[in-house]
Write a protein that binds this DNA or RNA. Structure first.
Lengths: 158, 158
DNA sequence: CCAATAGAGTTGCATAACGAAACCAGATTA
DNA sequence: TAATCTGGTTTCGTTATGCAACTCTATTGG
């Protein structure tokens, strides 16, 4: 049977995964953040099969994560560029990178050292904060009583 | 052919996706964060097929994201609980949730209102910050010259 | 004591998704 | 005119996924 989809799920995480939750989509977005824009470049840098790449690019364009731009002055040339929506996946990518660096560091290479281009400062560890700036862990989180109709089980431990 | 794997990829994002990058794993982790612990509960709350659930749970246990605990006082009873590694996926989940809330809000329901249990404060939007606390966007990021051997294309735009 | 029920899976089968390589088509270069 | 480049689509065989049915242990009800 087909993969299950979550377009109509009440859970926004599920809906997000619907768009970028497969094996390749987030890696394509990541590659786009590195500056890759053309079909062949995605194909070579990711080592993805071309049919899959075509399918994923189309889907990302459909979902407004990428924009397909015709830059063909001589011959067919297209570029896939991040939209604002795509660019806003940055925290997701960074969160995954930091998690991967922490728990699955590459044995023979140091972690990628990302820095702010202007200040030269390294990037801080992502933290979930409350409005006052206090760090919030999984266990600290709750859903107010009068708005817990969405997620099954959300009341118990949120 | 089988899905491509990235165990040995130099990219920590790819390695992270290797462990939680499929359709179900992150949703299982999310559900675990809500407090779900038993096989049947995961099955019912997620609507996942039992064989797939079994496979994913095993894989998450293998990867040390979940811990399988035998709580069988009378009859076989197991619980799948988050490890520290699993709990540290919290920022990833929150980042996805905020992205989903922003770009794919549920038409008929408000977004889940997560708050700090103690302070009652809502959770702040995740931001990527540099060491000084300045927000950093995709375009601001770079990789220092002497450490850019890891990711193809990382130099151009990081 | 026997039947029914629950928890935790496993097995079998059909279908959809994936991956590799071949193929196609317009435009450019040699 | 042939070879090449870009951007795909097609074909085909292998996996993965999903559903339903089945297993096995243990508890509960009568």
């Amino acid at each position: 049977m087909a993969r299950k989809r979550f377009d109509d799920s009440s859970c926004s995480v599920a809906r997000a995964l619907n768009e970028v939750g497969d094996w390749w989509s987030l890696l394509i977005v990541l590659q786009a953040m590195y500056g890759t824009r053309r079909f062949v470049d995605f194909q070579q840098e990711l080592g993805i099969a071309r049919n899959i790449l075509g399918d994923r690019l189309n889907r990302l364009v459909d979902n407004d994560v990428l924009r397909k731009v015709d830059v063909g002055e001589h011959g067919p040339r297209f570029e896939y560029r991040l939209t604002d929506k795509g660019r806003d996946l940055f925290p997701v990518v960074i969160a995954l990178r930091q998690w991967g660096d922490r728990y699955n560091p590459c044995p023979d290479q140091p972690s990628l050292d990302l820095r702010d281009r202007r200040t030269g400062q390294p990037i801080r560890q992502l933290e979930v904060l409350d409005a006052d700036g206090n760090p919030v862990s999984v266990r600290d989180v709750m859903v107010p009583e009068d708005s817990e109709k969405q997620e099954p089980g959300a009341t118990r431990r949120a």
